[in-house]
Amino acid sequence: MTPDPILHIQSLGVTAGPRPLLRGVSLAVPEGSVFGLIGPSGVGKSTLLKCCNRLVDLTPALRVTGTLLFRGAPVFDRRLDVDALRTRIGILFQQPAVFPCSVLANVLFGARPLARVPRRELPALAEHALREAALWHEVKDRLDQPATRLSVGQQQRLCLARTLATDPEVILMDEPTSALDPQATEAIEHLILRLRGRRTVMLVTHNRAQARRVCDAVARFAVVDGAGTVVETGPAGTVTADAPETGG
């Protein structure tokens, strides 16, 4: 491999008390790619995502072993500024979690405390993020309205815009379309394809067709000896073609 991977996971393991969730996971995620994680539910894919930006810290009793390098630096380093890490590695959840405030306030929720840009440039930043999330035309006339009034599909794109406003290098997506209807799903998939190249995306999905449509490379997870692990890695087409049917 020519360039160093942006995320390099080496024999990562996660245990919840005595119960192993993940064991011996090794992955190299190239910068600018869309990297898919597929496999049955309960195999630890979401947990792996949460390791990448250390949201696992917030779940008590989870223990992580092994190494996870982000641009060559260990993520599980005691001295690391975790909050800064999370602005560089954003996350999108299965269910859009919008805050009960205006659309504009939602977009700037993560960016405002960062104080990277002066106050008066915040509206421009919001517009940029909303355009990048292909939501601008739908909400530009109701930026002051409560975000909870948007449709679920719009809310999910709002969450994406919110993450984009903090200018992350990696975006983790945990089954971002499983709560959406086909049209909204298509919109999100289209967005992922647009992000490719500029940002790295790690996408957990149940939908193998979706993986084929948007991912460059895919890692397939399965339970081996009671813990989830990677059983196969490769280009999207080849891995998913051979894989057994895995729920959805």
Binding site: R86, T87, G90, F93, A97, F109, P113
Partner: peptide
């Protein structure tokens, strides 16, 4: 206050205190 909102705010890189002041307290 829904736990999902706290998690989302932490995921955006807000500190625990900012989550309290901007998410939990207002709601």
């Amino acid at each position: 206050v829904p736990a999902a909102q706290r998690l989302a705010a932490r995921g955006l890189g807000l500190t625990a205190t900012e989550v309290v002041l901007r998410v939990s307290l207002p709601q």
